[in-house]
Design a protein around this nucleic acid. Structure first.
Lengths: 123, 123
DNA sequence: TGATTATATGAACATACGTTCATATAAGAA
DNA sequence: TTCTTATATGAACGTATGTTCATATAATCA
């Protein structure tokens, strides 16, 4: 491999300074699939509208228009974001006539919010 | 306000079904600034490369090229992502000669990772 | 000194994202 | 049935994001 290729950052040329530590971590690392799902979960929480929706639902079960009122966001925007949260299984939906009531899907979500808030408030 | 304006979703026309609950949540809601910072924190964790970096650093202090080797990602990509994590105060940097060692900035980050992993693994 | 090594960063690119707008669906009221 | 209300969703739009490439900086080595 030439110096030119090296300069271009070919992956196999990256040197590793602390091989032991890298090995240790590699053995503890979860599957790529798990880590990607974890990233997706954080990403789903990583938009201000969705963060507020999750926070709100950690306090009360609410319908779409309640959330829209609370957050001062359009019904459509809320609905789109709820779909993302539903697909990620962060929230669940209960229909009562034409009204859709949303709540958190499991307790880890609330715990995540609380841990995250503690971090932010401490800074 | 006309039916036409209503149809267009003007914010002030959004009806609220459970006013009491909305009030309750509003009183508990953190400031917009805090919620936005919380969203930014989750967002920073919400990319597969960064998630893996944070996980790795929760196990060992590592330098840039160690991380690049571990994740099979270019040095440049790692460096860019580390800057984002540094700016968010999720990781800190310690220089030893020309080598930059990174570690988690505080314990909440590790707790977030663990809580998130528990959620993902349970699903 | 000049070469090498570890890291940082700006520009460019393709892709992904969040909102709005228009409209669809479906339940309830008149 | 027709009108209204609550929600869902596709398309379009501008913006943001993550990587690569090229290069800069700064420490160490020969």
């Amino acid at each position: 491999m030439t110096a030119e290729q090296k300069k271009k950052g070919y992956l196999c040329e990256i040197s590793c300074i602390n091989e032991g530590k890298v090995c240790t971590v590699r053995n503890q690392m979860n599957s790529d699939r798990t880590m990607t799902q974890l990233a997706s979960t954080f990403k789903a929480l990583g938009d201000p509208t969705r963060t507020k929706i999750i926070f709100a639902l950690s306090k009360e079960e609410l319908c779409v228009c309640d959330i829209a009122t609370l957050l001062k966001v359009s019904q459509s925007a809320v609905s789109h974001q709820l779909r993302i949260l539903r697909n990620m299984e962060l929230v669940r939906c209960r229909k009562e006539g034409k009204i859709a009531y949303y709540s958190l899907d499991d307790d880890h979500i609330k715990a995540l919010m609380e841990e995250g808030l503690r971090h932010v408030i401490e800074k």
